[in-house]
Amino acid sequence: MLDGIDFSLLALDSPGWGGALLEGFLVSIQLAAGGYLLGLAIGICGAVAKLYGGRVTRDLAEIYTIVIRAVPELVLMLLFYYVGTDLANRAMQAMGYSGFDIDGLTAGILVIGLVQGGYATEVIRGAIRAVPHGQIEAAQAFGMAPLKVLRRVTLPAATPHAIPGMANLWMIATKDTALLAVIGFSELTLVTRQAASATRAYFLFFLAAGALYLLLTLVSNLGLRLFEKRARRGLAEVR
């Protein structure tokens, strides 16, 4: 079955496409990691807003999560990308910066992060609600300031409950980067398509891309398992 496949096309140097593929892969990882971290930050803020916020903040967070989860991701990404960069550029122009252009990687991270944040908000909110209230109350009873309670008690105690959902979101983030190919990001999927159509070796390149995505998943799984083990110290043994 592998007869007639020219593996030299994967060579790192031109005319091989291996180098380009790896560069695309690196962009994919950067987009995924940046977007994921941004989503995590948004998720923590969103969860706190929903759980502890006043009426207005609660409603805003609610609208955000409903929209994110209701609209297809590709549509959201196109929307955020085109409308977002347009608005950003106009705002910059209005402030007197001309010819400003938000750079591609940042824009992609923002787009993925905004989508991830909607889901992360729900995951983290659920995890915080799973923390017995007495633990939080004990911290308050000792005079701990609210932000410190969040950082030292609520979030660490919620982490084990958040890990399964957040691990899922990481997997989704790595694959969402492929959607950015539509906007023209030179991430792994787009580079793969270019390589494939230039050489007509569709099977080879899509197989190679699939292997890279798989590799990323396997390595992340390993890391996540280590992290989970650490976060669950103290919970794992007895019970």
Binding site: G134, A138, A141, G143, A157
Partner: peptide, 23 residues
């Protein structure tokens, strides 16, 4: 003021309320 006073009013709860993620 509340935080300052609370810091020296130790409370022991019926259900212990230890922090499970700390030794």
């Amino acid at each position: 003021q509340v935080q300052r006073i609370r810091a020296h009013l130790g409370m022991v709860f019926q259900s212990f309320n230890l922090w499970p993620h700390r030794t």
